[in-house]
């Protein structure tokens, strides 16, 4: 099985220094757990964050040097020699950060896509079993036909960073044909201004219902009815 991990040259959201996004490190972990050959793929010139990503377990990274739409460049490169599995993080960190690239790529290649993957199993009959992570610790089992694109969950287990691997990574640049240009982004860009979230939406207005010194059995009944109405107790 041949896996390709899509890498974006990201920055750390706190320090602003080059660093791979959390989800891409998780994607490298998933690719390594699938076994077989694993390679990194990046559109653009070699960036500092790529070496750091490689430190988590990538032997080689191909940088595609071409001008134009990165989705078109990736699609052309991947359809020339299709891998079994393409893995990506949930979203980049430092660019437009919309998380659209894997979806556009899946649509262009006609491959299925699953997001929020925390673990992958072994291939059987052309189907790959995966586990999807949901909020509040819930999990969902799924299987997907190969070749496919998987977006790793940010909380999927991350392989450890090894400095020597980051230093030894073989980064080679591949010159590719230019793709169609993408339309310039609309609107204006400016430094981020933190806006307060809505407050008071979580707390009930002016306190709730109070039962003063009820009978224990009565209190238990009211409490269970209240929890059932909130949907916290199954039945």
């Amino acid at each position: 099985m041949r896996s390709v991990v899509l890498l974006s040259g990201g920055v750390d959201p706190v320090s602003g220094r080059p660093a791979p996004p959390r989800g891409e490190i998780a994607a490298i972990g998933l690719a390594l757990s699938a076994g077989g050959a694993v390679g990194g793929l990046h559109v653009g010139l070699p960036a500092a964050a790529l070496g750091q990503a490689a430190g988590h377990g990538l032997g080689q990274i191909a940088c595609l040097r071409g001008v134009g739409d990165p989705v078109a460049i990736l699609a052309a490169h991947l359809s020339a020699a299709p891998p079994d599995l393409v893995l990506a993080g949930s979203r980049a960190c430092g660019g437009e950060d919309s998380g659209m690239l894997p979806y556009l790529l899946a649509e262009r290649l006609g491959w299925p896509l699953l997001a929020g993957v925390v673990a992958i199993g072994t291939v059987a009959d052309g189907w790959l079993p995966v586990t999807i992570g949901l909020p509040l610790g819930a999990r969902q089992d799924a299987r997907i036909r190969l070749p496919c694109i998987l977006c790793a969950h940010d909380a999927a287990p991350a392989p450890p960073f090894v400095f020597d691997r980051a230093r030894r990574v073989a980064m080679h640049t591949v010159a590719v044909a230019d793709a169609e240009t993408i339309a310039p982004l609309e609107g204006t860009e400016r430094p981020y201004r933190a806006r307060p979230r809505l407050i008071g939406s979580a707390a009930p207005a002016g306190g709730g219902r109070v039962l003063d010194n009820p009978d224990p059995a009565e209190a238990a009944r009211v409490l269970l009815d209240h929890l059932r109405a909130l949907g916290m107790l199954g039945a």
Binding site: V11, S98, L185, Y192, R195
Partner: peptide
């Protein structure tokens, strides 16, 4: 076209963080 993670929305303007939430983009 899609805009994700909008932090301020009105009929005329949507503002969303970009660039690791160091920058923001305001657009229709």
């Amino acid at each position: 076209p899609i805009q994700t993670g909008i932090e301020m929305l009105s009929a005329r303007q949507a503002i969303r963080p970009v660039g690791a939430a160091w920058r923001e983009r305001a657009a229709m």
